[in-house]
Amino acid sequence: MTALEFSLILLLSSLAAGLLGALSGLGGGVVIVPVLTIIFHVDIHYAIGASLVSVIATSSGAAAAYVREGFSNIRVGMFLEIATTLGALLGAWLTTRVPTHSIGFIFGLVLLYSAYSSLRQYHEDLTQKPDPLALRLKLKGSFPASPGVQQEYVAQRVPAGFGLMTLAGTLSGLLGIGSGAVKVIAMDQAMRLPFKVSTTTSNFMIGVTAAASAGLYLRAGYLAPALVMPVMLGVLVGSLIGSRLLVRVHVRTLKIVFALVIVVLGIEMIVNSLTGKL
């Protein structure tokens, strides 16, 4: 395979990964790492480097669209970014210490969990008593529940959310992914923020979290320019198309199909890690 053919195939695969990542809400990173390692036999360090960069591109590229909808909460995002960036520093440092097959194994588990979480039904529980810590930190807001009606909310269980966010950051730094699934758990499940607020704020946070690992990835030599180029461009374009389609496509069936693909990739990552093929 020539360099040109390789780049074109990577571009198309990344485009598909970005498209599916946006449609399923899981993000492109969770797909691109297994694709690179399992199909293209790329070492996992290069794969997580290319993925992390794509994650920054997708998060920042989509930010303008999300903000306009009025769901994302910059205070909640900024406060929790303290947790995610510190976690990311730890995670990125771990990539230089932890053996390759352990990274692959953890990646497989995260894939299986992401597949499960993408199908999970979320609950809205807005009847709650105010959390004093959340009030002091101004972790509250309102969002357009229906035309002309603003629904107010206050965060609950702030320490639990903060702890889960540190975990999300660590996984992001260790695996080169956005950890959107864990971030949403922290906000939606632990802090009981409305689902739409959780997902859009999570997207907003992903770029900053990933930037915290990027410096170490760069200095550790994980960013191979010729590999990152088609991956980053492909995932970016794919996710932009995906987020446009999202408003028109019925996603339920697609989500199930995609979750199955993720499960297969997850099992493959775990098996490859255990048999030392990664």
Partner: peptide, 9 residues
């Protein structure tokens, strides 16, 4: 040339 090899970090 042929595609770069990223198999070994």
């Amino acid at each position: 040339g042929p595609r770069p090899n990223y198999q070994h970090f």
